[in-house]
Design a protein around this nucleic acid. Structure first.
Lengths: 133, 133
DNA sequence: ATGCTTGCAAACAGTTTGCATCTAA
DNA sequence: TTAGATGCAAACTGTTTGCAAGCAT
């Protein structure tokens, strides 16, 4: 039987915070957002609930360099990270499930999925000018 | 003009250590390997040289959950990570450069590349049995 | 000689954990 | 009532950095 979960005010705040933004916030971003509603909530609670909501499949998590980013979308999809400012957006590219089978066959691993992260420079940072790179 | 680099014993040891294994070692793995040749080398030197060799394109680095893994291969390619034991191997899958253009066009980002990580369970861990997952 | 490199220790970022207290069910 | 959840502080992991001494060029 599955573990019992309780509906605490804090858990709801964290879930709502993730669902209220589509810019792939960090745990710290969520902490700061939630702090505005409840100035007693601790980082530990935010981290614990983000993990728990992830385990529960209520949210997903993008393993980006520099730290995990949280996502209200539940379907597998690729992301693009700006190497200048760290912004993360969804990639306009369909998730290719057939690749999982191909790699499973080729490697012998029991493949459960894959994650693709594109790197580049976002329109804003391109405009802001890039002195020597 | 490009910055001057010196050929120190430590730098050579680190490069050789990465080149002598194809199992995508962590910085700590390399540190331990190199320590066997030079018991005075420090972690800081290993980390500094790994970064420098990466910048120099002498080695590459795989951003895996739990820490960077270093790779003697210089061509872009996908990886498969075992979620049980952390083993990282090369994926049997060609790197798709056309995806970069597609995403650049779709998002407005100046895409420089992408990295794909498959997750799954390696043959060893499958054999070792997986009690309840 | 010059200045890139080293080793050491301390700092750092992101995240997790032990524990006493609190609270949803 | 009681087991899950919280807040706090401390611990932890992976990595970077300041600094004085060392060594490649």
């Amino acid at each position: 039987m599955t573990v019992q979960r309780r509906n605490t005010k804090q858990r709801t705040l964290v879930l709502d915070a993730v669902r209220s933004r589509n810019d792939h916030p960090t745990a710290e971003d969520i902490y700061l957002d939630v702090r505005r509603q409840d100035d007693k909530i601790s980082r530990a609670t935010v981290y614990r609930n983000l993990r728990l909501l992830e385990d529960t499949h209520a949210i997903t998590c993008v393993k980006a360099p520099g730290g995990d980013r949280f996502d209200l979308r539940l379907d597998a999809h690729a992301h693009v990270v700006c190497t200048e400012c760290g912004a993360v957006i969804d990639a306009t590219l369909p998730y290719d499930e057939s690749a999982d089978d191909a790699v499973a066959t080729g490697t012998g691993y029991a493949v459960t999925g894959h994650s693709t992260i594109f790197t580049g420079i976002c329109p804003n940072c391109q405009r802001a000018g890039n002195p020597e790179q």
